[in-house]
Design a protein around this nucleic acid. Structure first.
Lengths: 346, 346
DNA sequence: AACTAGATTGACAGCGTTGTCAGCCTGACG
DNA sequence: CGTCAGGCTGACAACGCTGTCAATCTAGTT
């Protein structure tokens, strides 16, 4: 009652083990009748190839590693973000007949580098996907480049990459959100920027300016306030904006945390969202769905991005390797309850 | 410049490959001098055993699978919950020299069973950890039992389990929370129960009653309102409770979603939390940290639970197998800003 | 000194695949 | 009818490690 091996299948089908191997791996040059005979034997025995043996013989591990910022330490990704990345990566992995290993990584830990090295040596992954913001940290990338493990970066901070990478159109979608607000009638649209060490933030601000321009609204520097990505800073920024003589009717924050801060500040000031003030965020974090009112925001296609990244890892075996450059997957507006038409002046 | 193999190490150390294998695997019966010679050769060559070869020869995969409810489909676990489970599981896996495979599982998909079967056959994991609520679903457990893959269930819904399992003390900690509220001076403590198909919910209600008893407060059925785990239902329940002649000064909801609903309802009614009403939740979901005011809640030791579960998987190889029964890991109160002293009557 | 149990070590046969390469078979072509 | 390219198939050697078992060594005993 032991697991059937390739020999059992070969014997039952009356062929050599090599032919079974060919059928299992969808290799060419097997006659249809032979193939069918083998397939039926496989079904009959419920045969499944032994991964370890296959890996050993083929010098592949059929393992893909997803690397992301350790949520226990950084404030960057919330659980929802990570899970969405994982979902997309899993889909593509299973499609490619691989399994997914996850590897949260604390960059501030000085031993991150050797840890990654050890990971490579232990698992010999077929490929690696590195999520932002780690994808922009040389220390994280290096070990893979050195070990010649194929990797794909997610949301690289720069436009000019020498390899294939996957990103999204922060700038374009920020413009779109701004125009959406303008279309609701808002003329006074403020923007709260975030930590500018994240490249993404700069792009979002640019997009805001693009959107204003497209809507024919003049850009004014006084409409832009700096935050630092936290709820608290969003609230503080909002208070400053709302204390002015000419208060904005819409506030677009560069991330959801700050947008929620805006809502909280508005609540405290007795300003009703969205009736008197529209608020938009960015990221579609868990927070956005559950805030009250629920937050209009930008949903980054994280699952799709991860899926593309993993798929690209295997593209070069199926044919030509993917071209260098960033594969841009568009983000979408997620309209919820925190935005509405501009209040009628009274 | 190819990867060193066990033969290279053996040659350099002047021993047989078997002895190298012994050193690598910390097996007994190697003289200290020999061991040191081998270790030095390993360092010198930067040797790392090839996992696939090891797996093939040892009939182990050095893989552990963590199975949890697919967050894309169920409403059960939020991203934060999953990530905490993963963190604990990863810790124990690395400790044991294994890697962690993740497997979200949609039970409502009728093909869940064959999918699990395929997972087993493909990966031949050394062990499996099954998170709640899947850990209570026979369809999910069966494939592993049938294939004789060791598994540990997390938070099994029943006290009487025939194998080792890991759980937490829902009932005791719910009592603790209730007493905490009582200690703040609250006499009128209401409870919002959730979907009673989750065993946990029943236990939380029991704990609430225990806590009242311990505090010398009489239990009254009218103080318990049913919700269905959603924010909306929490809000509705709160509205009912707050519409009564004798309104509660504290509301303890069986999960965070409903507790947030209570806060939202209170906001709408102009009731200030926590000044006029204390609100407590359960789970410490992402939501709790970011609600306004931040939510006092119960933090389940998810990471520790997962860690224990994985460790137990390997315990039987290190000595005796872990005893049947639930290894209870205590949950803790997470006091935040939504609870405070009872309002002074005026 | 002979003897023995137990510690230490090594030779060797797998583990279940894939890669290589040679051989056979078939049909097209001259 | 002979030749040849190319499709199809199988024999066999890796792949790098662990398990088994026998051989050797050591120290304690008599």
């Amino acid at each position: 009652m032991t697991k059937p091996t390739i020999d059992d299948v070969a014997y039952l089908a009356g062929v050599s083990i090599k032919t079974v191997s060919r059928v299992v791996n969808r290799e060419p040059n097997v006659r249809d009748v032979t193939r069918r005979r083998v397939e039926s034997a496989i079904v009959q025995l419920n045969y499944r190839p032994n991964i370890s043996a296959r890996n050993l013989a083929s010098h592949r591990s059929h393992l893909v590693v997803l690397i992301y910022d350790d949520p226990g330490t950084g404030e960057t990704p919330d659980g929802g973000t990570i899970v969405r990345l994982q979902q997309g990566a899993l889909r593509a992995c299973h499609q490619a007949g691989c399994e997914l290993l996850i590897h949260p990584c604390d960059v501030r830990d000085k031993r991150a580098r050797p840890t990654l090295q050890a990971l490579i040596e232990r698992t010999r992954p077929d490929g690696v996907v590195i999520a932002a913001p780690l994808s922009n940290i040389a220390t994280v990338i290096r070990p893979f480049a050195d070990a010649e493990v194929p990797y794909v970066r997610l949301s690289p901070g720069t436009k000019s990459v020498s390899e294939y990478a996957v990103g999204t159109d922060d700038r374009a979608v920020a413009a779109k959100m701004t125009q959406y607000l303008a279309n609701l009638g808002h003329q006074e649209i403020a923007f709260i920027s975030g930590h500018d060490q994240h490249r993404a933030v700069v792009n979002r601000l640019r997009g805001y300016r693009d959107g204003l321009a497209n809507a024919g609204i003049a850009y004014r520097e006084t409409r832009v306030v700096a935050g630092d990505n936290t709820i608290r800073s969003g609230a503080a920024a909002a208070e400053r904006l709302l204390a002015r003589k000419k208060i904005p009717t819409a506030i677009f924050a560069a991330n959801d945390e700050m947008a929620v801060g805006v809502i909280q500040a508005a609540n405290r000031l007795g300003i009703v969202v969205p009736k008197q003030l529209s608020v938009a965020g960015f990221d579609d974090s868990t927070l956005a769905r559950f805030s009250s009112p629920s937050l209009t925001t930008v949903r980054q296609p994280l699952a799709q991005m991860a899926e593309c990244a993993v798929a690209a890892l295997f593209a070069d075996s199926d044919g030509q390797r993917p071209p260098p450059g960033i594969n841009v997957i568009p983000a979408t507006l997620k309209i919820r309850d925190s935005t509405g038409p501009v209040p009628t002046v009274n």
